[in-house]
Design a protein around this nucleic acid. Structure first.
Length: 791
DNA sequence: TAAGCTGAAATTTTT
DNA sequence: TTTCAGCTTA
């Protein structure tokens, strides 16, 4: 994982080592002896802040919005503020509510607070993600919302499986109305704080001709039956709890004397409502709520985040103070200038002007490429160049808009032997083997968890297929009992054939045995035993596919992770909410990730490939959300640029393969929105022109309309290597040893081919690497083999 | 039950 | 083009 760095002004020593007396503190008599003793540590941490940061830390009463631009020390303000509250004795750790979006952010905040206050205060119980805090509150009052305190939190897989069952029960064609579509609709409604009865008609009609709302309601009923909630419910049920039980709400309002919210621009409606309920005090006490965010970094609108929440803050919280952090400690003036100039094109923003006192640095480089392969090649070469100048690979990142872009880079880096790591992707907990393992553990503890039982009943294969499961379901539904119980009954009957019957009985006996060991055996050992005896480990050991080894490794990692908990139940409680991908650090590698997952990170050098119209901004964003979509894409571009400390390079490709079809791409409009004074257009150094580019000009540029600006640029930058796409020229340490020939490319007379300019056609003559092709639309043309693809 | 086939879809991702 | 899910066939 790329390191999250603090701002450049990271010079604070852990508080507690200073001797200065605090300049302004509350009356000493209100503090305990230990607090007074702690206070001798003084306010050195405040002196390390700039005036705006300091104001944000010291404005303790009333609503406060801190607009913290990229690299302006946002996390430091939040953590210092918490430390300050504690140091002044304004609140006990248990009276501060601090919410983040990710576990990572929560962990980091804990870490930094405890560094600031010298580790003297035990962990803050109410510092965590919205969801983690939501679970905590919900467990305490579960009965008030028709749940048992032991409720389980469903993951996405379980959700889908459950919805599939509902659709089947309603005889809804899953092809036309896929379960995942309904799942994401329900998710969207929950993000907006909507319970089924309040789903608007129009939206209800969006699924299965008006069954949307009813299915949502049925889904919720099933959840209650299962004593389960999904992620969205964690907040929604909190809202219900607070709304229906004002006394409970009042207790939390009084408890949380100070509230802090990180990444406020990412909050959705439900989270916003939740915060408002907690902050809205009727007893006349001030609403000490401090939200920190940056409207220019709001990039999660598509999953329910409402930029409006941050834009509306002053209306929502009358008398709110707004403090802008605009002093950037991260990037050079050129990078900042480019980013600021770009984001200034957005309309709906509160407006900030980032500035730095640092060097101008290098201008942002822009370079056009022929296609994505060349893009990868150019960037690969740049990286090798940087490497020769001892630039750490860890400090280089390639930020792409969509993950399919990564492939070209991975291919290239593998050929170059350049170490890289991919950040993001499927998270640890989401991996199949991890979910399977957890399902085994879950059923061991909780035999009535039907969804988990179904998941693993035939993994590894035990001959318990569709037919068996169907009988089980029938019996379970008829008697309203969990599947495992139905299984117990059914093995006593003649209903199943001997084979499945024996298999099922065996599995039940296994679970019983494992369950009997829960209290006596160490939970990590038990987990290993279960995975072993169930045949699950064996299944992957027998699997000779490439990924099998990694999966076994992940299972071991899971056991290691369990060590951090005392009991199996304790582990299960947290596993769905608090398990991140374990990213190795340590080795020096180039970082490859999406723009989304780059938020919050920073690197010396950042490459931003794929600034093509349609990719960034993404076409789908434009289609679905119009101007606000465009603005979110622009913010994404802005996030990308502001990740760079020293160097940023933007590239675009003139040809991109979209689902197999070559398409001519146009440079992103964002490129032309960058201020000229901060940008340098890369010149072709002529060194890269190997391969067919030496001799294909006569064909490529002799005829036809090649005078468009795009083609002119393409010509200026032409560095195409030999070989049809996906077929690298054979090189030994960069020396071309075998250029493509028509024969080598497997072309023969009559072969149907595709050309990005002329379309489809058939080869009518071959002369070395030059082909004569009869194109279906463009007629007979002479082209170089490397410009066509076999189809 | 399991491999092979066919057709549709194809951003971004956290909890 | 690739991937993946669901369906068909051995």
């Amino acid at each position: 994982m790329g390191k999250i760095r603090g701002s450049a002004a990271e010079t604070v020593s852990p508080a507690g080592d200073g001797f200065e007396e605090a300049p302004q503190t509350p009356p000493t008599e209100t503090l305990s002896i230990s607090q007074r003793a702690m206070r001798r540590g003084a306010d050195r941490y405040l002196e390390a802040l700039n005036p705006e940061q300091r104001e944000a830390v010291e404005t303790l009463d009333g609503p406060l919005l801190v607009l913290a631009g990229a690299g302006t020390g946002k996390t430091r303000v939040l953590t210092t503020r918490i430390a300050h509250l504690l140091r002044l004795g304004r609140a006990h750790p248990g009276q501060i509510l601090a919410v983040t979006f990710t576990n990572k952010a929560a962990r980091e905040m804990k870490q930094r607070v405890s560094e600031l206050i010298g580790g003297a205060v035990e962990g803050m119980p109410w510092l965590g993600t919205f969801h983690a805090i939501g679970v905590k509150i919900l467990r305490r009052h579960a009965e008030l919302v028709d749940l048992k305190p032991s409720f389980t939190v469903l993951d996405t897989d379980d959700q889908i499986r459950l919805i599939k069952q509902l659709l089947a029960a309603e005889n809804i064609d899953e092809k036309r109305w896929p379960a995942r579509v309904l799942a994401s609709m329900i998710d969207g409604w929950k993000n907006r704080g909507l319970r089924s009865e309040r789903v608007p008609d129009g939206e209800s009609y969006g699924f299965a001709n008006g069954k949307g709302r009813d299915l949502y309601a049925a889904y919720q009923r099933r959840l209650k039956d299962l004593n389960a909630v999904d992620f969205g419910d964690l907040l929604l049920e909190n809202l219900r709890l607070f709304q229906d039980h004002p006394d409970v709400l009042a207790r939390y309002q009084q408890r949380f004397r100070y509230m802090l919210v990180d990444e406020y621009q990412d909050t959705n409606v439900a989270q916003y409502l939740w915060l408002r309920l907690l902050a809205q005090r009727e007893d006349g006490e001030p609403q000490n709520v401090c939200c920190v965010g940056d409207d220019d970094q709001s990039i999660y609108g598509w999953r329910g985040a409402e930029v409006d929440n941050i834009l509306r803050f002053e209306t929502d919280f009358p008398g709110a103070k707004v403090i802008r952090l605009e002093r950037n400690y991260r990037s050079t003036a050129h990078i900042l200038g480019a980013a600021s100039g770009l984001i200034a094109h957005n309309q709906g923003r509160l407006g900030k002007t980032l500035h730095t006192e640092g060097d101008d640095g290098e201008k942002v480089v822009v370079q056009g490429c022929w296609d994505d392969e060349e893009e990868a090649r150019v960037i690969g070469e740049d990286i090798e160049q940087l490497q020769r100048h001892e630039h750490a690979l860890n400090e280089i990142a390639i930020l792409v808009r969509a993950s399919f872009q990564m492939r070209a880079f991975e291919d290239r880096f593998i050929t170059l032997g350049l170490d890289y790591r991919v950040i993001g992707g499927p998270r640890f907990y989401e991996r199949q083997e991890i979910r399977d393992a957890i399902a085994y553990l879950d059923v061991t503890l909780n035999p009535s968890n039907d969804l988990k039982f179904e998941r693993i009943v035939n993994v590894p294969r035990r001959g318990l297929g569709e037919a068996t499961l169907k009988s089980l379901h029938q019996l379970a539904r008829a008697n309203e009992i969990p599947l495992t119980q139905a299984a117990r009954l059914i093995v006593e009957t003649e209903e199943l054939k001997p084979k499945p019957r024996r298999a099922l009985a065996g599995l039940l006996a296994d679970f019983d045995r494992w369950r009997s060991m829960v209290d006596t055996m160490r939970h990590t050992e038990l987990a290993e035993l279960i995975l072993d005896e169930s045949g699950y480990t064996g299944m992957w050991q027998a699997d000779r596919s490439q990924q099998a080894e990694g999966r076994l490794e992940n299972l071991k990692e899971l056991i290691r992770f369990m060590e951090e908990f005392d009991t199996l139940a304790g582990f299960m409680e947290h596993v769905s909410l608090v398990m991140d991908a374990a990213t190795e650090e340590g080795t020096d590698r180039v970082n490859l990730m999406t723009l989304h997952s780059a938020k919050g990170l920073e690197f010396d050098t950042v490459f931003l490939p794929g600034w093509d119209e349609g990719l960034l901004p993404h076409q789908r964003s434009l289609d679905e959300a119009g101007r606000s979509g465009l603005e979110e894409e622009r913010r994404l571009a802005h996030v990308g640029l502001t990740r760079a400390r020293k160097n940023a390079k933007i590239t675009f490709a003139q040809n991109r393969r979209n689902y197999g079809m070559w398409q001519t791409a146009v440079p992103s409009r964002f490129i032309d929105e960058l201020p000229h004074e901060h940008v340098q257009v890369a010149e072709d150094d002529g060194l890269r022109g190997y391969g067919p580019s030496r001799f294909d000009s006569e064909d490529m540029f002799a005829s036809g309309n090649y005078e468009t600006p795009g083609w002119q640029r393409a010509r200026a930058n032409r560095q195409r290597s030999g070989g049809a796409p996906r077929r690298e020229p054979i090189t030994i340490e960069g020396t071309l040893v075998a250029a493509s020939t028509a024969e080598g490319a497997g072309l023969e007379l009559g072969q149907r081919v595709f050309h990005q300019k002329f379309g489809y056609g058939r080869v009518s003559a071959i002369d070395g690497n030059k082909l004569t092709v009869d194109f279906e639309k463009a007629g007979r043309k002479k082209v170089v083999d490397s410009f066509v693809e076999r189809v």
